[in-house]
Design a protein around this nucleic acid. Structure first.
Lengths: 254, 254
DNA sequence: CGCCGCTTTGAGTCCATTCAATTCCGGTGG
DNA sequence: CCACCGGAATTGAATGGACTCAAAGCGGCG
C-alpha cells in the first residue's frame, strides 16, 4: 500500500515536471528572493545552501502545486505570477488566500514536518522557486539569524488568519466585501479604485459567499458610491466604504 | 491624550491588581511551566531570567485578562483554571477558543510587538503566570534553543486557526458540532462521552452559531445516536458522528 | 420552596443559497 | 469587420437554513 502511494507520488512528480519547465536561477531572481524579509538576515553561505538545493520552475495557469494532505516537502516562493490557496472538503472548495510575488507560502507545514492543510494552484503562468523542506529546517537549525525572520513570518501569517476568522464569524458578506475593496484599493484623489486580478468567483469564495451573492453585494454597494466596471471597482465615497467595512450595524439606511 | 490613555492603563492595572491576588511562584508551578514544550529546551539561566521577571496571579472568574487592541505586554501562561479567547466587534462577540492548563497564549503578538487581536477572560477562578513580553523577546534573541519550540508553538497555533477557518467556511453548524464532540469526546467502550466544561452559549459562539441553533443541532443529532444530559453528551454510534464530522453531504437520510 | 440564569422550544422573518435563464464580454474564425 | 461561441457575470424566483423574538422548561443554590 505504502509502496503504491510512493509510486503515485513519483508519477505525479514526473508529470508535473513534464508539464512544467525547469529553469536555471538567474542572478536577478536570486537577488529578489534574497531581499525577502525571510531571507534577508541569514548568512551568505546558508543562503547559498538554500539556493543550491532549490530549483525554479515555470508552471502554466491552473496547475496544482500543492495537494492538501501531502507531506510538506518544499517551501514555495512565488517569483512571478499568481497563486491561489484553497481547500477542498466533500466536493466543496473554498479559497483561503491569494499570493503575489514575492512571497513564500506554507512555511508552517514545512517547519513542523506535517502535511499541508491547504492546496495551491497557479491562477496565471507563474515562476515558482521550490526549496526542499529539509534545507529550510537545516538552515533554521544552523543559522540563528534565520529564527527571527521565520518567527515574524509565521506570526504575521497567524495574525492574518485570525483576522480572516474573525471577519468570517462577525461580519456579513457585504461588510467583508467593503473591507476588501477598501484595504486593497488605491486612492486616486477622492475616489478609491480597486482592481480584482482574478475571476470574481474566486473573490466570492475567498469572502465566503457565492458568486451570486457577491454580485448582489456589488449592486447594494451602489448606495455607497460604488461603481463596477468589469474587474475594476470605483468608489467615490471611500469614507462610506470604510464605515461599512468597520461593520456599521447601527445605520439602517434605505 | 496619550497621557490619559496611559493613566487609564495604570488605573486598569491597579484595579486588576486589587481584584487579583499576587502569588509567589511555587516550586511545583515552576516545574509545570518548565515542562511546557515551549520552555523545555532553554537553558536554566534563561529560564531563571524569565521566571524572575514573571509573576503569578490568581483571578476570579469572568475577569478580562487581555483587551483586544492593547499592546501585547505579557505572555500569559494558564497554570490553573479556564480561559476564553474572544473578539468583539460592533457589539457582537465571538469566541475564538478555550484554553486549559498548561498552555500559553498570544505568543504571536508578543513576538512581533503588536497589539492583541483577541481578548481573553477567565471562565473560572484561574491562576495565570504573566511573563513580560520583553523578557520573552530577550530570551528569544539570546538563546538559540528557544527558537525551535517557539516556531513549533506558532506553527501549530497557525494550523489550528486554519482548521477553524476551513470548518467555518465549509461545514454546517451541525457538522462542526459533530466534529467538536468527536474530537473532544472520550471513548468508553462503544459509546463516546463528551463533557462541555462551560456554558453551551460559549460553545455555540465558538462554533459560529446562536445558542438556539446549537440547541436544535443537538436535537438533530439524536438521529445519530446522541443523547444530551446537561453538559454531558453521549453518543452510542461514534462512527455516525465521525461520518457527519467529515461532512457527509452525500447521505441524505430520511 | 422559590428565585434566577441557562437552556430549550416555538413561531415568524430574513437573508443567503440554489436553480434557472439571460446578458455581457473576450477571443476566434469566416 | 462582423458573427459567433463559450465562459463568466448578472438577474430573477423560489427554497431553505439560521436568526430573532418571545415564552416556557429546567436546574442549581440560597
Amino acid at each position: 500500500m505504502i509502496a503504491f502511494v510512493f509510486l503515485f507520488d513519483i508519477c505525479q512528480f514526473l508529470m508535473q515536471r513534464m508539464a512544467a519547465e525547469t529553469l536555471t536561477l538567474r542572478a536577478e531572481d536570486i537577488h529578489t528572493v534574497r531581499s525577502l524579509p525571510l531571507f534577508a538576515d541569514i548568512s551568505e553561505s546558508q543562503f547559498g545552501a538554500l539556493m543550491g538545493a532549490a530549483f525554479l520552475q515555470r508552471f502554466p495557469a491552473q496547475t496544482q502545486l500543492i495537494h492538501e494532505g501531502d507531506q510538506a516537502d518544499f517551501l514555495h516562493v512565488i517569483v512571478e505570477g499568481m497563486v491561489e490557496m484553497f481547500s477542498t472538503s466533500n466536493g466543496e472548495e473554498t479559497t483561503i488566500g491569494f499570493l503575489e510575488p514575492v512571497s513564500t507560502f506554507i512555511l508552517a507545514a514545512v517547519l513542523v514536518e506535517k502535511v499541508y492543510l491547504q492546496s495551491a494552484r497557479t491562477l496565471e503562468p507563474s515562476r515558482i522557486l521550490m526549496i526542499p523542506a529539509q534545507a529550510i529546517r537545516d538552515v533554521f537549525a544552523r543559522d540563528p539569524a534565520f529564527a527571527g525572520p521565520v518567527v515574524r513570518e509565521l506570526a504575521e501569517r497567524y495574525r492574518e488568519v485570525v483576522r480572516q476568522l474573525k471577519s468570517q464569524k462577525m461580519q456579513s458578506g457585504l461588510e467583508r466585501l467593503a473591507a476588501w475593496l477598501f484595504a486593497r484599493g488605491e486612492r486616486r484623489g477622492d475616489v478609491i479604485e480597486t482592481r480584482i486580478p482574478f475571476e470574481k468567483a474566486k473573490l466570492a469564495s475567498f469572502l465566503g459567499m457565492t458568486r451570486e451573492s457577491l454580485s448582489r453585494s456589488f449592486a447594494s454597494l451602489a448606495d455607497h458610491g460604488v461603481t463596477v466596471r468589469g474587474r475594476v471597482i470605483f468608489c467615490n465615497r471611500p469614507d462610506a466604504l470604510a464605515r461599512l467595512a468597520r461593520t456599521e450595524h447601527s445605520t439602517h439606511d434605505h
